[in-house]
Nucleic acid binder design. Sequence first.
DNA 1: TTTATTATTTAGATTTGTCTAAATAATATT
DNA 2: AATATTATTTAGACAAATCTAAATAATAAA
Lengths: 219, 219
Amino acid sequence: MNLSIAEENHIKSIYKLQEGDAVVTTNALAYELDTKPASVTDMAKKLKEKKLIEYEKYKGITLSADGRKAALQIVRRHRLWECFLVDKLSFSWEEVHELAEELEHVRSEKLTNRLSEFLGNPVIDPHGDPIPDANGKLVKPRPQTSLDQANAKRLVVTAVTDQSTALLAFLNAKGIKLGTQLEIMAHYEYDNSIEIKVKGQSPITISEQVAKNIMVRPL
Amino acid sequence: MNLSIAEENHIKSIYKLQEGDAVVTTNALAYELDTKPASVTDMAKKLKEKKLIEYEKYKGITLSADGRKAALQIVRRHRLWECFLVDKLSFSWEEVHELAEELEHVRSEKLTNRLSEFLGNPVIDPHGDPIPDANGKLVKPRPQTSLDQANAKRLVVTAVTDQSTALLAFLNAKGIKLGTQLEIMAHYEYDNSIEIKVKGQSPITISEQVAKNIMVRPL
DNA sequence: TTTATTATTTAGATTTGTCTAAATAATATT
DNA sequence: AATATTATTTAGACAAATCTAAATAATAAA
C-alpha cells in the first residue's frame, strides 16, 4: 500500500487523536491538520476505500488494523529522526519536530531500520514518547512523573497528589487542571522553581513544592 | 524562493545536463526526468517566471544565476545524504541514490550544515562527485581516471588514450565513444577484467588492457 | 418537542503537475 | 528549394488535494 504524504499525515493525526480507541471527529482532525473539515471528509472517503480507517458518514473515524500498522510505521520514522537530530546533530528538543515531520515521509524500511540500529535502537524519543519497533510494538506507555523532574518539554497534567484546598485554589487560579497542556520554558537552579506556559496563556513561574505535586506525562 | 519538489527536480536536472554552460533541450530534459516534453515546456514557463532559468520558445533552457545557486544547494543536500547513508548507515554505492533523491528535498539550511559538520565536511560523495559547500562553491571538477581504476560506478567516457585502429574498431563495435555513459557491473580480480554496461545495451566484459586506455570521469 | 446551534457533508471551483493529440517550428534530406 | 523528419509548443483534459459556500444531519437549548 503506497501512501501519499497527505494520506500519511491524516493517518498519523488520526492515530494521535485516537489515544487508544476513541472515535475521531471531522472537526478535530481538520483542526489538528490545520485544514478544513470538508477536506477531511474527502480524505476520509479515500482512506476508507483503502481500508485504512473505519468511517461512516457523521459517525467519525477510527483506524483499521492496517491503518494502525501504517500509523505506527510513520510514528516510528518520525521519532527515530528526532533522536538522530538531537543525539547526532545537536539540535534541541523544540527544533526537531518540524524537520522530523518531513523526514518521516521517506518510506524505506531498510533506511528506517538502519537508522534505528545506528542510534542504538532507542525506545523513547527526545520528548519522552516511545518509539515503535520494526513490528510496530510499543514499549509500555511512559509513566507519569512529577513536574519537577519531567524531562520532556511539552506535558499534560495527569494528576495532582496534594489535595489541599490551598494548592487546588492556586492551580485553579492559574488555569491548571487534569488534561491541561504545559510547556516547560525554563528551570531555575537557584530555588528549583520552574517557568511554565499553559497552552494559550502567558508564562508563569511555580515553586518546586508546587511542581512536586503536579503529575505529568509527555504530550 | 520556495520551490516545490517538482521544481527542484527540474532545476537539478537542468544543472546536470548543462555540464557547465550548454543549452538544455526540451526533449533531453524530458528524457532525464522520465516525463514528457510537453510537461517540460509547462515547467519551463513557470521557472522562467520565477527567474530561475533563461528560456525562449524553441531556444532551449539554461540556468540563471539564481537557478544555479538553487541547483547547487539541492546537489549539496543530495550528496551529503549519500555520504551519510554510506558512511554512517553502511549502505553501498548503488543503493543510496534513490534515497538521497528523497532526502534532498528537506530544505533546511541548518540541517544541511549540521549534517555536513557531522560527516566531517566531506568534499566528495561516494560516487566521486564533489559536494558544493554552504556557499555553493565546488572544489575543482574531479579529474578523469582510466576506467580500470575508476572508483565511481556510473561513468562517462572522456577520452581514449590509445588511438590504434584495433582499439577504436573494438570500441566502435561495442558502441563506446566520447560521451558514452557506462556503468561498472563487476571487477574480476583474476585477470582484472571489468564487466561494464553501456547505457541501453546489455553488459559486456572488457580486458584490463582496454580499460587502461579508456579515460572516464564520474557521471 | 420545536427551534437554534454546531458539525458534517456535498457540490462545484482551484492549483499543481502531469498527460495526449494536434499544430507549429526547426532541421535534415532529397 | 521543396519536402520529410524531428523537436517543441499549444490546447484541452485529468487526478490529487485542497478550498468556499450551501445543504443537511446531529445535538443542544428553550
